[in-house]
Write a protein that binds this DNA or RNA. Structure first.
Length: 554
RNA sequence: UGACCCAUGGUGUAAUGGUAACACUCCGGUUUUUGGUACCGUCAUUCAAGGUUCGAGUCCUUGUGGGUCAACCA
């Protein structure tokens, strides 16, 4: 049975190109990050799209760093970006490229345009050029330097490259169409003078190409057949095509799709950096951040992110993806793969008064009911255990299936117990422990008691409990769209998005957890061991809660 | 008030001229030694108005609404 999936509009274009025999049916895409920040969930969509579409059509995907602005780009980001893409599960093999690899070629292309009389050196200031460009409603005006001779332009551009002029004093512009309703066609700047140390080319160059002159040509040089980018570049496409045609180089095709918005998230590198700099999060990989590194630390599996990027779809309309879809993908993945463990987040002691003093038995408990091959582990059980404080109520509401005086529940993988009473500290009024009795013949797996218990509780054996810390997370923002107009997004940061629980007790098997490993803590949610952990102090991040079926709405 | 892009349930994506599908969310139910999972059910006549057609979510026109574009950023 093959599931027939409809094509998205990009796949339709590609299949059309293949059917027409374009490029011999070859498909080659690229992911072109600028190494000036960390990758986020929005980049994940682009990464998945480019790699998956190439895979689907038997093609390849290049990784290309778009490093044409040395003022903001750093090697640190290059390394982080590569690690994130690999973690997501994609491999660019030996095709790791940099736009800066092409600086020489790009310079030759520019010289070619100058010689063809299609580019000129402009001495105008940035402000003057902005004025010359006009407005969307009025056409632009010619720069006084537009009519320089080819010889003079060749001379001046060469000297720009040779470092004879100060930064910002001149630019190279291309002669396209000053009357075009498309602002990008009004003689765009393609080279600027900028004495900045470049992370790869060092001080070799003092002129750097602009995006429009670097991106498309890089695609072309690499033989990229389909250059997928976000909608805001749609106005650049005529220029993209113009360069290809004037230069007579390999015709890559740019196709634009809508980037996604995810509720309660932002995907602006600048604003993400603000969160870091203002100390509202602990870093780029804070588990609340929408960065790939943040999601990873939070415990979101790469497979879940890939599924999410697939389910989100590809189209051209503005869209708001509900964060619930992402969480659903995460739960679905973790439900299949995460080992079940027990942890009590807010413990209260429970004493089984008729259980033999000093006795301990090992009770087997399944590692994952969704995966028969996952086996089981043995959980120690004795007279004193911990249960969740919220699993006991002196005076319960009608449909409370948990413990209360006289109530009977099952301890998961152990025995059925009945609550006798609660011990309250007379001076503080605080509940100190719960006294219960158990039914020896109700042991899990060999229950002959015939007793029915409505609720099942998770628990941790007291003498062997491992203490730990759990970081509980909530959405980073208080509104679905923190960038909605009228307010500063920083005022929408949820100041209660992190709650640290320091009094957690964990079952002993958890001492063997590895950093990044995901578990389901029964009845609580999914958690992953944080890198802040030490053998003496385990720290778990809450990845996502379990879906809540019942809530105590009095 | 220039040009370009877009318009299908609460959200996202499908339906490629033949009578609106799938997923998430929400709400209700069945099963359950996780109030999880699984399973079942409820929730839209497609922005508006004209037109073409036997037939329009799909094609055409005009509106309306939303978005994008005027960095020596990418």
């Amino acid at each position: 049975m093959e599931e027939t999936r409809s094509l998205n509009f990009i796949e339709e274009f590609i299949e059309e190109d293949i059917a027409n025999g374009k490029h011999g049916g070859r498909v080659h895409t690229r992911f072109p990050p600028e190494p000036n920040g960390y990758l986020h969930i929005g980049h994940a969509k682009a990464i998945c799209l480019n790699f998956e579409i190439a895979k689907k059509y038997g093609g390849k995907t290049n990784l290309r760093f778009d490093d044409t602005n040395p003022a903001t780009e750093e090697t640190e980001y290059v390394n982080a970006i590569k690690a994130d893409i690999r973690w997501l599960g994609y491999d660019w093999e030996d095709r790791e490229y940099y736009a800066s690899d092409y600086f020489g070629q790009l310079y030759e292309y520019a010289l070619d345009l100058v010689r063809k009389g299609l580019a000129y050196v402009d001495d105008s200031t940035a402000e003057e050029i902005a004025v010359q460009k006009g407005t969307p409603a009025e056409p632009g005006k010619e720069s006084p330097y537009r009519s320089r001779s080819v010889e003079e332009n060749v001379d001046l551009f060469t000297r720009m490259k040779d470092g004879e002029f100060p930064d910002g004093s001149r630019v190279l512009r291309v002669k396209v169409d000053l009357a075009s309703p498309n602002m990008h066609m009004r003689d765009p700047v393609i080279y600027r003078i900028k004495r900045q140390h470049h992370h790869r080319t060092g001080d070799t160059w003092c002129i750097y190409p602009m995006y429009d002159f670097a991106h498309g040509q890089s695609d072309s040089i690499e033989g990229i057949t389909h250059s997928l980018c976000s909608l805001e570049f749609i106005h650049h496409r005529p220029l993209y095509d113009w360069f290809i045609s004037q230069l007579g180089i390999f015709p890559s095709r740019q196709i634009e799709f809508a980037r996604m918005n995810v509720t309660y998230m932002i995907t602006s590198k600048r604003r993400l950096m603000q969160l870091v700099n203002e100390g509202l999060v602990t870093g780029w990989d804070d588990a609340r951040m929408p960065t790939i590194s943040g999601l990873r630390r939070r415990g979101y599996p790469a497979a879940a992110i890939r599924t999410f990027c697939d389910k989100v779809g590809i189209a051209k309309r503005d869209n708001w993806i509900e964060i619930e879809l992402l969480e659903s993908c995460v739960r679905n993945e973790l439900n299949q793969t995460a080992l079940r463990r027990m942890a009590v987040l807010d413990p209260i002691k429970l004493v089984i008064s008729n259980y033999p003093q000093g006795q301990t038995e090992l009770l087997p408990s399944e590692n994952n009911p969704e995966d028969e091959t996952s086996g089981h582990r043995d959980m120690p059980f004795s007279r004193e255990i911990y249960i969740e404080r919220e699993d006991f109520m002196i005076d319960p509401p009608k449909k409370y299936f948990r413990l209360s005086p006289g109530a009977t529940v099952r301890l998961k993988s152990a025995y059925i117990i009945t609550c006798e009473r609660a011990v309250v500290n007379e001076s503080t009024g605080e509940m100190e422990e719960i006294i219960c009795t158990y039914y020896p013949d109700s042991k899990s797996g060999s229950d002959t008691s015939g007793i029915k218990a409505k609720g099942t509780l998770h628990w941790v054996n007291a003498p062997t409990a491992v203490k730990g810390e759990i970081r509980m997370y909530d959405r980073l923002f208080t509104t679905e769209n923190p960038l909605a107009e009228g307010v500063d997004f920083l005022s929408k940061v949820n100041l209660e998005s992190l709650k640290v629980l320091n009094n957690v007790v964990l079952e002993p098997a958890l001492a063997e957890a590895r950093v990044g490993e995901g578990f389901q803590f029964l009845r609580q949610g999914y958690f992953t061991l944080d890198r802040d952990s030490t053998p003496e102090h385990l720290v778990f991040n809450q990845t996502v809660s379990l879906k809540e079926g019942w809530t105590n709405k009095e």
